[in-house]
Structure formats: C-alpha cells, structure tokens
Amino acid sequence: MTDHLVAAEHEDWRLFLRKASANRSFQAGAIITLFIVIMAAVSLVWTPYDVSKLTIPDRLQGPSWAHWFGTDHFGRDIFSMIMEGSRNSIAVALIAVGIGIVIGVPIGCWAAAKRGWIDEVFMRTSDIIFAFPALLSAVMITAIFGPGAVNAIVAIGIFNIPVFARVARGAALSLWPREFILAARAAGKGPARITAEHILPNIANLLLVQGTIQFSLGILAEAGLSYVGLGAQPPATSWGRMLAEAQTMMAIAPQMAIAPGIAIIVTVLGLNLLGDGLRDLLDPKLRRER
C-alpha cells in the first residue's frame, strides 16, 4: 500500500488506468455496473411502457420486438418493470452499504486507535452479531417492524456495520505501527486527527473493495426479502416481487421468471467482477476474506 501523498495522486491515476486496461475482470464489471446504473437512471424519466397501466388483452406474451422480455399476467411490459426494479435494488443495497460504512468505519478505526478493552469489547460484540444468521434476522426485523423498502434497508444495513468495522479495524491496526504515523504522533497530532488525515485515506481502497462486495450481497438480500413479501411494497416494482408473482404463474408462463432472475444475476455478477478487479488493481497483496 502506498502512503498517501497528494503530489503523487496524478501519477497514481495514470498507473491505475494503465493497469485497468489490462484487467478484464475490472473492465467487464465496470461496464455491467455502469449499464445497470444508467438503466436505473433512465427509468426515472422514461420506460418503454407505463408499468402502472394494465393492458389485459396484451397479457402473458412471449418476447417480441414490441415487448423485449414479453408481458406479465396484467399485460405490463416486463422490460419496463426490470428497469423500474433496478432502481429499488440499487437504492436499497447502496444505502445499506452506506449505513455499514458510516457507522462501522468509525467504530473500527476507534477500536484500532484505542486498543485495550475497548477493542476487546468491540471484537466480542461483532462476534456475537456474526453469530446471528443474517438472513433470519433480516426477515425477523422486517416482519416485526413492518415490511417495506426502508425496513429492508435497515435490516440489511445492520449486518454491514460489523463487516466494515472489522475491515477498517484490521487495516488500521496494520498502519498504526508504521513510521509515517509515528511521525504524525511526534508532530503532536491526536488519535482522531491521525485517523482522519492518515489512516482513512490509506484504508479507503480496502473499504471500496469491501463496499462493492457488500453491495452485491445487498442486491441478493433485497431480492430475497422482496420475494417473501417483506421488501418493497406495491405499487413499487422490485425484482424479488416480480419473481414471487412469476412463481404463481410458473405452470402457464415460465418466461415471467426468466427476466428478473437474469437481471439479478447480471447485476451481482457485474459487481463481483468489479470488486475482484478493483482488489487486484488497488492492492495485489490483498487477499479475499471468504
């Protein structure tokens, strides 16, 4: 890991771009992710068909030029619904990652800076949280506090907190004995200032990689929660709910299940490839945790 130097930043970028041009995993991941994000953005202003309008005569059509992925049992255009649904998936997963970073990273950095019993208490607490099966707990939280996108975000976000806290702590611990931190301490900077000015910029890479991984896990978790009816509620469209509706139509219209599934797979695959690529680019020594 290179120490953070403002003067070298420009050079860093050129090096990054040169390595990126040789990293296929990064390229494929970046293109797919960009595509999904653009699709979600476009759906804010335009979709091929209005998904809130039911046109029963057009129901259960197969793929055609007019309806790329066919239509559902209410005659709605499935491609338009996929576009709408991408927004929900991205929003839920992204905010859940945000919760993990905003709460987890300060906790992890604090534990690394203080060490001693604070660190011990933190580690044991995160052990305990990890002992709760995440999916079961998310189901419990959303079922108890009411289904909906907001509670789904909270349920997924809570389990991102210890993940980011651990990554931040581990990386920060390895930095504290370094010379440049010692120099900062000798210059009279306190732990909070050292963390903000020297630790955080140096662990940002790691957090970015972990963020990508948690993002893809969040997409999967959101899909699962919506599938069992605990995520986004009607009239909002979500990929998981589309699959739940497809299940009831499985015997007569199996094609309804194909598009939402592919959408989830492509998004998760894209994010995972992006994460792998970033990890190789940003730090070749870094190893995946699981």
């Binding site: 699962g224 497809a246 939402p260 797979i265 998760v268 995972n272």
Partner: peptide, 11 residues
Amino acid sequence: IAIPNFWFALL
C-alpha cells in the same frame, strides 16, 4: 455465487 438460490429453485 451470483444466482439467487430461490430463483434457481423456481427453475
């Protein structure tokens, strides 16, 4: 890794 298990189950 990217395939949601409940979707695979539906298939």
